[in-house]
């Protein structure tokens, strides 16, 4: 059974001035960890709000575990967990009160599914009497995840759970997701961080309400159309300026320690010629190597 099935879903705001979703279609398999990767304004939150039955689409169909988002919304709400991008727990209830509240809304006791959240909850348990509004960002995030899980949903919707979170905490959060997946939970997670794509089984790249590509991270990388090279020199800023003047290049973008480039046509001599051009332009300590594209390279390529 498909956990989520979306067929040509569209949604606009402001009388059509903003097309938030434009005929989006994809499906999430049961037990799958599926990533929705795209920048702010891509339409990720709108899609989550439609799938969690908080917003109606203009057109198109969607089902969650076979239930229709328009007619079977009560069933869907019972079976999914949703962690919105914006912190949405009760700020003036304590950690423990929030958790009990969300359990009781689903007609359950805190203890019923405690095993599922134990690993995560133990990290915030020392602060169980603190009001949620007084928690640190990292702890709020963990509490929100516990509240979304407390009724043991079949499917977890996580809208940008790692935005604004530092690199170490992001890694920890993804470890938690892996454990939940291992217990059979289906997860649809969105993120603007391209490097997190590799942690998903399949991903959809989304921009301006349109899906650019859907595949496994490796599958998307394999579709990159040309060989890609990384170039480095002593002065990276002026190297970027020189590279941008080279007409034989199809693309040129800064990627941390290196600049990534691709050529318009494939010719064995090109690398050597470029090396000579860069030397002639006064660049020092030049190094070039063929590399495998990252998801971010693919996203940039697909944006054009």
């Amino acid at each position: 059974m498909e956990a989520v099935s979306i067929n040509s879903l569209s949604k606009s705001f402001n009388k059509g001035a903003i097309q938030a979703l434009d005929a989006v279609s994809f499906s999430v398999q049961e037990g799958e960890l599926f990533g929705l990767i795209g920048p702010d304004g891509a339409g990720k939150t709108t899609l989550f709000r439609i799938l969690t039955t908080l917003l109606l689409p203009d057109s198109g169909e969607a089902t969650v575990y076979g239930w229709d988002i328009r007619t079977d919304y009560q069933k869907i709400r019972r079976e999914v967990g949703y962690m919105p991008g914006k912190f949405s727990l009760y700020q003036d209830l304590t950690v423990e009160e929030n958790l009990s509240f969300f359990a009781s809304v689903f007609g359950q006791k805190l203890t019923d599914n405690y095993a599922l959240i134990q690993d995560i909850y133990e990290q915030i348990a020392p602060f169980k009497d603190r009001r949620a509004g007084k928690l640190s960002g990292g702890m709020k995030q963990k509490l929100a995840l516990c509240c979304a899980l407390i009724h043991r949903p079949k499917l977890l919707f996580l809208d940008e759970p790692t935005t604004g979170v530092d690199a170490v905490s992001r890694k920890e959060f993804w470890e938690m997701l892996k454990k939940l997946k291992a217990q059979g939970m289906s997860i649809l997670v969105s993120t603007p961080y391209m490097d997190e794509a590799n942690l998903c089984e399949r991903i959809a790249l989304i921009q301006n309400g349109k899906i650019l590509s859907i595949d496994s991270p490796q599958g998307i990388i394999k579709q990159y159309p040309t060989p890609l090279y990384a170039v480095k020199a002593k002065n990276m800023i002026s190297l970027l300026a020189t590279l941008r003047q080279q007409e034989q290049l199809a693309s040129c973008y800064a990627f941390g320690e290196y600049h990534h480039i691709s050529f318009k046509s494939q010719d064995a001599q090109q690398l050597q010629q470029l090396q000579q051009t860069l030397e002639a332009a006064g660049h020092q300590e030049i190094s070039m190597l063929a590399i495998e594209p990252s998801i971010e390279d693919c996203f940039i390529e697909l944006m054009h």
Binding site: E160, T163, M194, I237, Y253, A254, I300
Partner: peptide, 20 residues
């Protein structure tokens, strides 16, 4: 303070051009 959070990858690089 975190000027490029959530910005698409191409615009993020254009933003760094402004910084340079």
């Amino acid at each position: 303070d975190e000027p490029t959070g959530g910005v698409d990858p191409v615009t993020r690089r254009q933003f760094w051009d402004l910084i340079y």
